[in-house]
Design a protein around this nucleic acid. Structure first.
Length: 480
RNA sequence: CGGGGCGUAGCGCAGCCUGGUAGCGCACCUGCCUUGGGCGCAGGGGGUCGUGUGUUCAAAUCACACCGCCCCGACCA
């Protein structure tokens, strides 16, 4: 009967996640292409919603979209020492094209700093050419050993912003401006609370001076890096000879930034809100805000109900599920699994009373409202769902941020944590940004996720490993 | 890439040990009937048994190799 094929979260979180993705019709593994996935309409529509939100904000802050080649000469990667070292293991390389071995192989872009650096050098001569503020929506390939749909696949979709500035101050402002945009979209659109912070030297982008990220907490307590913004300093400017003449007539290398969010966000969205019944989508990213299911027994009812339902659906701009041969019950389950925020019902009883039934996905609560107020009630309910999802996620994040005063205590908190079993926490502890600390944490598979930009955890102390004074606590967690 | 599991109809599985030419449930199609949380009955369609090689009179079944997926580990958005 009403048997959910979705593994309960408490039983196996990793299996639950996969079930939700599949049952929610978001994506499926591209079993013929290793480590890749097919994003299905219900999943791609969420990506399009996110694209719109980000793209609008990028445009509002002066960025323009561009497109650079998928293939990058292999030698380009090697121009920045740290960059090549960081990406080499995961590159896919094209060595043959047009039936002939290439003189110089192309790598399929894992990210575009290098090829963009090359063109920046051609475009930029004077301080008057700066800043350059561009963004591209693209696919990238990083050969991953272990993949999970949306969270880590060998090919994924993202946006990568690349900017060049005449001063470090200006570049750094850009880095933070973008990080704010990422946090704002995550929280207000995706209803996914995040912690903004700086990455440690060991976790930063290969080739960057400093990296910043937003870190979200999944329902199993694991951390998910949901967006990154990098201060590249002059590293790529030097590597690609991107020089400009200052207004004092001197030559200097440009100061660059790069920043990105990917389809991984969808994985984060799923693991933040969904439940044992399946996908739960915040209204602001849901492909369908509401679906109307008509209910009827006899042919006379059928005609009347469908006519009224069609009118309501058209008026409210929602989907009418008028498929034949499916019972209403089957339809309810269908849309529930797919995360539709509100499912409305209209049957003979409602026709007689002039009402319509609204059922919200997050709480499962049903409400009967007059048809004349349906539009207003729907809007209010959607707003309430959006708020409720954020509130729940925010409360979970708060509850699962805990303090620790020794490395053993951190270990004790995080050791039982796994992706399947959950139980994860964000442990706030005094640790220095130092390889010795990260080595120790690695023993129990935890990492310093970030050094929060806003310290809500009581300021400085002594590093639990090195004993040196540190200005604030850092976030330690197990992560995807 | 190492360890473990899996691969048979769209999905979930049985059959494999003990070789003899493929079956069940759901889904799908047709008809009737039903429809306020996964209706029912009757009839019907659909499978290179992941791929390849080998053993054999005969391979889903035995052997070897490869591919893919899932979980665990090392590497990462």
């Amino acid at each position: 009967m009403a048997e959910s094929r979705i593994t309960p979260r408490a039983q196996d979180f990793a299996a639950w996640y996969q079930d939700v993705v599949l049952e929610g019709d978001m994506a499926e593994p591209a079993e013929i292409v290793k480590g890749c996935m097919v994003i299905k309409p219900n999943g791609y529509a969420v990506w399009e919603a996110l694209q719109r939100e980000f793209d609008n904000r990028f445009k509002e802050t002066g960025h323009q979209n561009v497109y650079f080649p998928l293939l990058i000469p292999q030698s380009f990667l090697q121009k920045e020492a740290e960059h090549v070292e960081g990406f080499s293991p995961e590159l896919a390389v094209v060595t043959i094209a047009g039936g002939k071995e290439l003189e110089e192989p192309y790598v399929i872009r894992p990210t575009s700093e290098t090829i963009i650096g090359h063109f920046f050098a051609r475009w930029i001569q004077s301080w008057r050419d700066l800043p350059v503020l561009i963004n591209q929506w693209a696919n990238v390939v990083r050969w991953e050993l272990r993949t999970r749909m949306f969270l880590r696949t060998s090919e994924f979709l993202w946006q990568e912003g690349h900017t060049a500035h005449s001063s470090h101050e200006e570049a750094f402002e850009e880095v933070l401006r973008i990080l704010d945009i990422y946090a704002e979209v995550a929280e207000s659109v995706m209803a996914m609370p995040v912690i903004k912070g700086m990455k440690t030297a060991g976790e930063k982008f290969a080739g960057a001076l400093r990296s910043y990220s937003i870190e979200a907490m999944m329902q199993n307590g694991l951390a998910l890096q949901a967006g990154t913004s990098h201060d590249l300093g002059q590293n790529f400017g030097r590597a690609f000879d991107v020089k400009f003449q200052t207004n004092e007539g001197k030559l200097d290398y440009v100061w660059q930034t790069s920043w990105g969010v990917s389809t991984r966000l969808i994985g984060g969205l799923i693991m933040t809100h969904s439940d044992d019944k399946g996908l739960v989508l915040p209204p602001r990213v849901a492909p369908w805000k509401a679906v109307l299911v008509p209910i009827y027994r006899k042919d006379e009812e059928r005609a009347a109900v469908l006519e009224a339902a069609g009118k309501i659906a058209a008026e409210l701009k929602i989907k009418l599920d008028d498929r034949e041969g499916q019972t209403p019950g089957a339809k309810f389950f269908h849309w529930e699994r797919r995360g539709v925020p509100v499912v409305m019902e209209l049957g003979p009883r409602d026709l007689a009373s002039g009402n319509v039934v609204l059922k919200r996905r997050d709480t499962g609560a049903k409400e009967v409202v007059p048809q004349s107020e349906a539009g207003a009630r729907l809007e209010a309910t959607l707003a309430s769902i959006q708020q409720n999802l954020y509130g729940t996620a925010k409360a979970r994040l708060k509850e699962n941020c805990v303090l620790a005063e020794s490395i053993e205590q951190i270990e004790e908190i995080l050791t039982p944590v796994t992706a399947e079993k959950g139980g994860g926490k964000f442990v706030l502890a005094h640790l220095k940004d130092d390889p010795r600390c990260e080595e120790r944490l690695k023993e129990f598979k935890a990492t310093i996720r970030c050094i929060p930009m806003v310290d809500e955890w009581g300021g400085g102390g002594k590093c639990l490993i090195t004993g040196e004074a540190v200005p604030q606590r850092v976030v330690v967690a197990k992560a995807y």
